[in-house]
């Protein structure tokens, strides 16, 4: 029973929401030129990290809008929520992967 902050409505019960898996996968616009492997990667392959995960959610039993969330898959902590098209928030220090200089945000600049 999570408690989730909808970027439009505020804090609501988890049962009002639905998770749609990994965020920031842009639909390819040149699919005709893509190999089966490339297209298959877009259609079938998703990250499944133990730790910080960028996800898509909908507030189905509320405003019915889509949004993005950064959730920790172990603690279920929602580190940030943001609207589609908004810049990906920077990860707080304690969640950053010490092995890299990156903030842990997805590579793709496109948002979905």
């Amino acid at each position: 029973m999570l408690q989730i902050t909808c970027p439009w409505c505020g804090e609501r019960e988890g049962i009002e929401f639905h998770c749609h898996g990994e965020a920031h996968i842009a639909r390819p616009e040149n699919s005709a030129e893509m190999s089966d492997a490339e297209w298959g990667d877009y259609v079938f392959f998703r990250k499944n990290p133990k730790g910080v995960h960028y996800e898509r959610w909908t507030h189905d039993a509320g405003c019915r809008r889509w949004f993005n969330a950064i959730r920790h898959t172990v603690s279920d902590e929602f580190i940030a929520v943001y609207k589609p098209g908004e810049a990906i928030p920077e990860l707080p220090e304690k969640y950053r992967d010490p092995a890299s200089n990156r903030t842990g945000a997805p590579q793709s600049k496109e948002t979905k």
């Binding site: 639909r27 809008r65 889509w66 589609p84 979905k112």
Partner: peptide, 13 residues
Amino acid sequence: LNWLEEWLQTEWP
């Protein structure tokens, strides 16, 4: 309906 909304809200705003 959810399918249409998904594409309109996320991919084709």
